[in-house]
Nucleic acid binder design. Structure first.
Lengths: 268, 268
DNA sequence: CGCATCTGCGCACAGTGTGCGCGTCGATGA
DNA sequence: TCATCGACGCGCACACTGTGCGCAGATGCG
């Protein structure tokens, strides 16, 4: 109808007082996206992925968002809360299959475990932070993952208590080994070394100390493998250790349940 | 023979020049213990045990040692190096039995694992720091523990490669679950809550969200147990999952070795 | 006794998380 | 159309961090 206040700011030359703040010099803040919790979380994850956990400061984050450091505090209570938020966000990336056939529990556990490991390697800072935050703050995605993980084991046939124990054991293993991998890889990146270079350096250095001949040998063995695959194989080995035992216990439990059922039907 | 320079400072009134710095006003620095790497490490561990990882600052540490913050840098290159040193020191507390009877490997692994867990619970900050330092820096005690751990498995009958995998798996599990425990306990202590209080609060809160009825039930179950023992039982459950599988694989390996030996002796 | 070396310390710098109050913006009700 | 209001971003400031630098005093050696 009349003046469009978006394009041409009205009454620009009318105000005679301050030529310094004209229509043109005035920062058109609304053209940059507004801050929001979602945008902050997304940018935080990007920053962490690119530059690592030690590079996360509220000032740096604000700069990437075209905002001052303290503006973030309108949307996030503290840096710690921000970290809880991004950790939960990463848990949202996990794939925890829903079980249709109870016999598929082992595959489902494999998928879940690999998914957790992959997420941890994509976002290595998560693993460094998990030890401090402990997963005890219970964001929605963490809760959801926990529930769906437990569902796998209970529909497989474990009772609730054992499902909790088993899930805790498996995820402890996954988190433990993945955070070791992540720490290792980030330490390497900090020094700008490849894994092969490290093993090449470390083998002889260990062999120099006579006592460490055993370890030196191990390091030299590592040189012949593709390190990425070797780490994956280690992971699968440990995971299968646990799943094998779970399978045995499940079979025993189902057998004894069958037996009991047969006994009661026979006695009737 | 002559003046004992330890008790009475010699030649005190002899120097006529500066009355400001008399024997009495002069800081008797040598009476406080001198700084040393050992003393710094010990005091750091004490501080960390008492006040947690976030309370460790070079200034606070210096104060406890009766020294300025920057004095510490004569003995320690950086705060990160100091942390590496104290972590290695804690690894020195571990008990890793030497194996006489190969059949005792399982007990030895139990002892080692429990020892690692106990150390982690005594010094909860270690677990929070392991994710960042990754154990890839190789202090002497860490190396020693690794060697002795591997020795258990190799004298039990595993070949070197599998011993490495197995040790890595077990210790990943132990570190993973212990750091979860440690994070949990420190988070509780920060809020001044007991475990029972938390479960009492969280059960109903979860039940309020209809979807979380399952988890609420679990929390209420937790209320009936002694939490310390429950955590220990969880730990033992997961540890036995791994050791059971290792036992199976070892038996299979020994059997096939026997078989092969018999076959060759039979063919000769 | 004189000299060299080691040790501790004060100062300073850049950088951190975050509380507070101000100005400016967009939407809303009359 | 205009006045009002709540949300939002920002600059400032504070206390605190790790740590490089140069000085002063103490210790040990010739």
């Amino acid at each position: 109808m009349n003046i469009d206040s978006d394009d041409t700011d009205d009454a620009g030359p009318v105000s005679p007082a301050l030529p310094l703040t004209s229509v043109w010099t005035r920062p058109q803040r609304r053209q940059k996206e507004q801050l929001s919790r979602e945008r902050i979380i997304a940018e935080t994850i990007a920053l962490l992925d690119e530059e690592g956990i030690e590079a996360l400061s509220m000032r740096a984050l604000g700069q990437r968002l075209g905002a001052g450091a303290t503006s973030l505090y309108r949307h996030v209570a503290s840096k710690d809360e921000l970290i809880e938020l991004v950790v939960d966000e990463v848990y949202g990336e996990l794939e925890v299959p829903e079980l249709t056939d109870p016999a598929g529990w082992r595959l489902a556990m494999h998928v879940t475990a690999h998914s957790l490991r992959q997420a941890g390697l994509r976002h290595m800072w998560v693993m460094q932070v998990l030890g401090q935050v402990g997963l005890n703050y219970l964001g929605p995605n963490v809760v959801s993952v926990t529930q769906r993980g437990l569902a796998i084991l209970t529909t497989a046939g474990f009772d609730t208590e054992e499902a909790v124990r088993a899930m805790s054991s498996v995820s402890s293993f996954v988190v433990g080994i993945t955070s070791a991998e992540a720490g290792w890889l980030t330490a390497l990146r900090r020094q700008g070394m490849t894994e092969q270079e490290w093993y090449q350096n470390m083998g002889p250095r260990m062999a120099a100390d006579a006592a460490d001949a055993g370890l030196a040998e191990i390091y030299l063995q590592e040189l012949e493998k593709d390190p990425t695959e070797a780490r994956l194989a280690n992971f699968v080995y440990g995971l299968d250790l646990m799943l094998d035992s779970l399978q045995v216990r499940l079979a025993a439990k189902l057998a004894s349940a069958d037996e009991k059922a047969q006994a009661t039907t026979a006695s009737q």
